[in-house]
Design a protein around this nucleic acid. Structure first.
Lengths: 342, 342
DNA sequence: GGCCGCATGGTAAACGTTTACCATTTGTTG
DNA sequence: CAACAAATGGTAAACGTTTACCATGCGGCC
């Protein structure tokens, strides 16, 4: 009646075989005769026996688990990648466990510890920060379970990155706005700690420089990838005496907050001001107006992450290389030509 | 140089003590003298030793992990609960692992297997469906690791539920629209498999019945809790010869799709038609217009889930009871009085 | 019949911890 | 200083698997 789950020993007794045979019947079927296999499987069905993977993992030093560590699972962009990770992982027999850190160092370490303590085989890391409490300079990837960086690079040797070229994407987005006649283009960035945001900013600056426009710090707002950040920073931009004719938001969530702030101030998008996003999350086409943005190939990113990790997991000497995937400009109706009088 | 993580035996040798002492120094500090403890901790620091929890869990039959199984981690409502789960769990020394199933049975089973195979201690279940491949009628909660139902009940004895009263909430939302003069009130539900959606529908019908309005199946659209479902079903509602003056969406995501469809058709919200949501996700106030909705106490839900699970985990004989928490009507500007001519 | 090889299944060691039990040392108290 | 208690640390068993190694039995072949 109580939670007495049956063990392999009892199961063996019931099936009338040794525990070795039980193990083989379950995880290496062709190693036993059809008759015994069925005897064992029948007993399994009858008793509801479920092997204890702690024992198995302890012996084999493999768990079949992969942990994806990220600051925010509810971030719609991350989520696109997650979905793909899970699909690809289960094809290969792994389970993906999600570790949501909310940027909290203690929680990063807790999830890192899960891998270091052998409860998972490897990490997909959606952050530039290592989930280990060690000196980065002394870090040697060979002494730790495999990690693949997704979208944000840690910049450490031995940790492959799967990402788009954020610099190029930032440049392309800015160029698109320039092509519409915009000259006063503001940006609302992600955290300056985020390498992807830093790269996008470089692209933005490069595009402007190409047409001879110098950096204008008033037009650069350092935020983070959240909706609230978009709202707040937009308000600040609107308070400028000479306000921008376009705002390039480094995430679609930022753009959502941006659009809300613009609406509050009575400005029409894109007639009065253009708004550009980044990521192409699933909500983007439902924004008001539907958002022009840079689409990231989330399925491909997820696929390659698992593929690289698997490679490293099955071959210790593998030296997986960075994978840079193409992004795509998606034009909707939040961007338009600059107003003649501006 | 290769991934040779050090074990407790080597660590013991380095520290010059027995493995028992190492174990005690780490996980039961007061059991050893200050001097030896420091000797051990120094060795740990020097070597970067990290205990293998498989061995420990195997011995203690505890992992300190809780798995939250849900159809969609990116669902903003779920996420509110997740955040709270994580906070509350880490206070108690648990790690929360997220299992995203996308409603896929195979993946539900895979995450269920993680618990049955002792890799986690208990489950927070965001679905009415058990993640086990067994006959529900024969299910005996005592034979399985503890489960707490979050927001969706499985209706099984021994599985406590933490939720709001969905029926009452559905009734209250409907009454609010009735109070604004609406008589033709449509609903877009969640999946009919979702007990929460079924309850909300009951509340809606009860509210209408109270004022003498009978069920009108044309006004009841069975969807699911997604944005696409909201868009599609709204289109169908608008195609009715006698269209509703208000739409009650059973999730804020549905409402987001609904608002998009209404905008496309040129209708003004709330002047031409009122829209009501459910959940009060973090985006709701950024909708256009900001969404009137029913707020669920997500922090409280998460807290109680962990609390109940912890109770059951530490006391096998505990009989945790359902926790029903209060919801709250949040009025914003997507709802308004019915048009005089309607 | 004698021999070989293969299919099958058992025995026992190993994985890395925790902890009951015991032995020793140290401290306390009369 | 005897006697006992408390503090400390070691030994070894146990948790549930997998798998190297071995033993047995059987069919096929000369």
């Amino acid at each position: 009646m109580p939670n007495d789950t049956i063990g392999i020993k009892e199961l063996a007794e019931i099936a009338g075989v040794s525990i070795a045979t039980v193990s083989r019947a379950i995880s290496n079927p062709k190693r036993v005769s059809k008759a015994t296999r069925e005897k064992v499987l029948d007993a399994v069905k009858k008793t509801g026996y479920s092997p204890n993977r702690l024992g198995a993992s302890l012996r084999t030093a493999k768990t079949g688990n992969i942990i994806a560590i990220m600051p925010d699972v509810s971030d719609q962009f991350n989520f696109g990648v997650i979905k793909s990770l899970e699909l690809e992982a289960s094809k290969r027999g792994y389970s993906v466990l999600l570790g949501d850190t909310q940027g909290d160092r203690a929680r990063e370490l807790a999830y890192g510890a899960i891998v270091r303590s052998k409860q998972a085989d490897g990490i997909i890391l959606f952050s530039h920060r290592l989930p280990y409490d060690i000196d980065v300079d002394a870090f040697d990837a060979n002494n730790f379970p495999p990690i693949v960086n997704s979208c944000e690079t840690s910049g450490l040797p031995g940790l492959p990155l799967v990402s788009i070229n954020n610099r190029a994407a930032g440049e392309e987005a800015t160029n698109y706005l320039i092509g519409l006649g915009h000259k006063k283009i503001a940006v609302i960035t992600g955290s300056t700690e985020s390498p992807s945001a830093v790269e996008r900013l470089k692209g933005y600056l490069a595009a402007l420089k190409t047409i001879g426009i110098n950096r204008d710090n008033d037009l650069i707002k350092y935020g983070n990838y959240t909706i609230e950040s978009g709202e707040e920073n937009t308000k600040q931009l609107l308070a400028l005496t000479d306000r921008p004719s376009a705002i390039f938001c480094f995430s679609d969530e930022i753009a959502m907050g941006c659009l809300a702030a613009l609406k509050n101030s009575g400005l029409k998008v894109p007639e009065d001001i253009s708004v550009m996003g980044f990521d192409d999350i699933r909500f983007a086409r439902f924004f008001d107006p539907p958002l022009t943005t840079i689409a990231q190939p989330v399925e491909e990113i997820g696929k390659h992450c698992i593929s690289l990790l698997h490679e490293k997991l099955t071959d210790k000497d593998a030296k997986p290389e960075d994978v840079i995937l193409p992004h795509k400009l998606v034009v909707r109706s939040s961007t338009g030509p600059v107003k003649p009088d501006e």
